[in-house]
């Protein structure tokens, strides 16, 4: 029986090597390491178990752990692609990669579709769209009449549901976004262009030089 001593520092559960994550995303190794510092900060904000729970995600977004928000819930669930109720580091980096300014538009369009496809049926249905508008009104304290809500939901469906079957599929969504590119503007985070410059407090000494890769 041998005795194994790891020289690696203790990492959070679900930790993945920055070299691997950098190879799979648009981030450099040092940027992944900077994201790890951010990840550790968020994941230890309430429960210090090294995993991002939904309350911690909400706290980071809203400075309020109890603020429920339909869209934050959807984004959390999509980041948590392993569906184990927490965002692991690899999920965090790969998902944020879609928000990189240089990430493909197709990935951004697909991600936005999944946010709006509330019940994961593969379609955005009229009732889901109405539900999202109502949730947003509740969030913003804006008051709109029932008639106005019906009008914008119907108008949107008239424009997007080209097949006229009462639901918007991914192809219809892609077409609709191509005509309304502002719909995915929140799918790009300029911060990610060079996170090590934007957030010098996150920069740590890289164990692997990017130039070595």
């Amino acid at each position: 029986m041998g005795c194994f001593h790891s020289k690696s520092p203790k990492h959070t559960p679900g930790y993945e090597e920055p070299v691997i994550l950098a190879a799979e995303t648009l981030f450099s190794v040092s940027e992944v390491e900077a994201l790890y510092e951010l990840y550790k900060k968020i994941s230890s904000s309430i429960t210090d178990d090294g995993l991002i729970h939904k309350e911690e995600f909400q706290l980071a977004l809203f400075r309020n752990r109890n603020k429920r928000n339909l869209f934050a819930d959807r984004v959390f669930d999509i980041f948590d692609y392993k569906r184990n109720g927490v965002i692991e580091f690899g999920e965090f980096v790969r998902s944020l990669g879609i928000f990189h300014p240089n990430a493909s538009v197709a990935d951004k369009v697909s991600f936005a579709f999944r946010v709006y496809d509330l019940r994961s049926t593969g379609f955005i249905e009229r009732e889901e769209l109405r539900e999202m508008v109502l949730a947003l009104l509740h969030e913003s304290d804006v008051v709109l009449s029932e008639e106005y809500i019906e009008m914008i939901v119907n108008k949107t469906f008239d424009d997007a549901d080209k097949k006229g079957d009462g639901k918007i599929d991914l192809d219809e969504w892609k077409e609709f976004v191509s005509q309304n590119p502002s719909l995915i503007k929140n799918m790009t985070l300029p911060y990610l262009k060079d996170i090590t410059l934007a957030f010098p407090s996150f920069v740590v000494r890289s164990e692997v030089e990017d130039s070595d890769l």
Binding site: E37, L38, K41, I42, S45, A60, L61, F62, N69, L70, F71, A72, D73, R74, V75, L96, F99, A112, V115, Y116, L129, M132, V133, L136, E139, S140, V142, M151, I152, V153, K155, T156, D159, A160, F176, N180, S182, L183, I184, K185, N186, L189, Y191, I195, A198, F199, S201, F202
Partner: peptide, 25 residues
């Protein structure tokens, strides 16, 4: 006024604006 429900949502929902994650730093 908005005539596009998705534009209304994407423009106004703070839950779909992840830039705040970085303010944590």
């Amino acid at each position: 006024p908005f005539y596009n429900a998705f534009e209304f949502i994407s423009s106004m929902s703070s839950g779909f604006d992840l830039s705040n994650l970085f303010e944590s730093g």
